[in-house]
Design a protein around this nucleic acid. Structure first.
Lengths: 190, 190, 190, 190
DNA sequence: GATGAATGAGAGTTCATTCAT
DNA sequence: GATGAATGAACTCTCATTCAT
């Protein structure tokens, strides 16, 4: 029963957080939506902050699991595209989880570098792949923070756009365009 | 004296909003920081919401004013670079205003399309310039929402990165790299 | 100009008081409705309380003026009916003034005896007429407070009823019935 | 413990409402008088409005319970007198409850017809009894609203008068007089 | 006389958290 | 483990009143 209610609380919290924001969601509402008593929430999570962090860790792990490592025998471009497509697909398949991640990533109480660290854990392989691409001369030799920043920024905004305009997401050309923007933006110019 | 205290309130609000977020800032704190009585805030702004909107409109107008229209006799690339540099410079020169705009642009209570509309007012010329670039064959013919999304997303994330890592902002190569990412991401591939 | 604005304030106050109650009406709203500045109200009335009292005195005087003394050569019943009809007519002709008076008469902060005193000033002749009727044996010899209480109570409730149900007020039989209830209620039983 | 504090709050509210009026009583004062924390009030009642309504319903039910139905084998007059005496006695025995009811019944935010409906629930049997009296020819055939209006109005004002002047209430003749005013006011004239 | 910006005490309400059961 | 009543600080907003102009 214990794990049961704990998970119900996490589910309810995710649903409410994406509907009305993290700050704007009262713990009492979460408990009610989960169908448990007010105090039960604090039995499983020491504070609202802990609940939020637990949810964040769980979602990050969930996403990391969904992103299978790219086949290293492929080209850097193919590998990056594999990661990109998997990430976009995960975001579209898990809109609440993605929305929550996006909210966390834009929380002004965290520094940008912390936000990058957060996202990088969800998008593993990425930093190494970029470095590899630079060493092989396929990617421009710009500073890593700049490259990562672009990857994260385009990932978040592209999923948001696709989620809001399903017609775009359903169009293979737009899907390809979204990746091309990332790739040619970072690619080394001949 | 009137405009005096009203402006003090706007200044104090901006300062606090960027330090601790909009929701997390109490109206009483704003009044205290502004050195006025609690009720004075509500004499000038019917509600906290109105204060936020007033601040937003004022900042958006301020930014729009700072961005002079590009010389239309230049190439599309040169025009876009002009806008981009001016926008980046404005963001770095007005870190609080920029941070506030970024918070508003990421507020989950607005749809992405509304956020685009908001930003487009602060970045005029951009939609037309993109269209012009597409017609002249310099930019890829991808859907406008995709192009605008990339512009906004990279603008916001780049200024944030530069603001947090001044060394990058001070490096002309990084500055150029940031623009190149945008340009080659959107440019038509030969 | 002075008397002008003072009267505008009294008019606005009466209108708002009857629409939303005395306590629920803010002085700022009164000033706004009167088309004068906030502080002007306190220029003419030392406090909201004074404004209310001034309004009350003015309405009471207005009503007293409207009620012409009965022809003392008539029977007590005819005299009472004259007063009653005049009072009812005044109430129906001045719904806002009446409503305000009724609000004052039901204010729990005043004792009932004070409320009687208030109403008696607006309905002069009544106490003496009742006494006269009792001496002549036409009215029952019950204590004055009981008689006055009935008069006031039926006056207030009858006008309220007629005001809310105009069809009743327009029916001469109902008008007569309302008076008969008062008269036969107080009349000496044979 | 739950019902304990909830009842304490209702008791405190009733006491304060009758002393200083409903609007003029702050929720904080109620909580303080009840000896509970500020938030406890809102744990039991969603709003001040709900507290007021709960109190009203409870008092109305209390009064309705106290008024036993009249013996239908008696004359209409005897039945009416039974109801009248019971109502007056209840009002005098529960001065705070009565005062509160009176405040509600005079609240200008309700229409008179709503006020009648409210009182009729506390004074059941009355409408049918009046109709019966009219059919049997003992009461005048005037419109029901007029009759009910008189009943309510005289009930409220009589208890108020008796409560303020205990000497009157203690005098059997005055008690009888109060009822006679109602009866002969409504009785059919021979 | 008239203005309206300024005040600050106080209103109703919310909410994360505690704790006795 | 689970409950939900209880808490009290903090929130946004209201308002009668003051006063410099």
């Amino acid at each position: 029963m214990s794990q049961n209610k704990k998970q119900q609380l996490l589910d309810a919290a995710l649903s409410l957080f994406t509907r009305q924001g993290i700050q704007a969601t009262a713990t009492a509402k979460i408990a009610k939506e989960a169908g448990v008593a007010n105090g039960t929430l604090f039995h499983h999570f020491a504070s609202k902050q802990v609940l939020v962090e637990t949810l964040y860790l769980s979602i990050k792990a969930d996403m990391a699991t969904a992103l299978t490592p790219p086949d290293t025998s492929l080209s850097v471009q193919a590998q990056l595209q594999h990661i990109w497509q998997a990430a976009i697909n995960w975001g579209l398949a898990h809109p609440q989880q993605f929305q929550f991640l996006r909210q966390m990533a834009n929380d002004p109480q965290y520094l940008l570098s912390q936000q990058h660290a957060m996202l990088s854990q969800a998008l593993p392989f990425l930093p190494q792949l970029i470095e590899q691409g630079q060493q092989q001369g396929e990617l421009a030799g710009w500073p890593q923070p700049l490259m990562l920043n672009t990857c994260h920024s385009l990932f978040l905004s592209t999923v948001s756009l696709f989620a809001e305009q399903p017609a775009l997401a359903a169009d293979p050309a737009s899907r390809q365009a979204a990746f091309d923007m990332l790739w040619y933006g970072m690619a080394r110019q001949a």
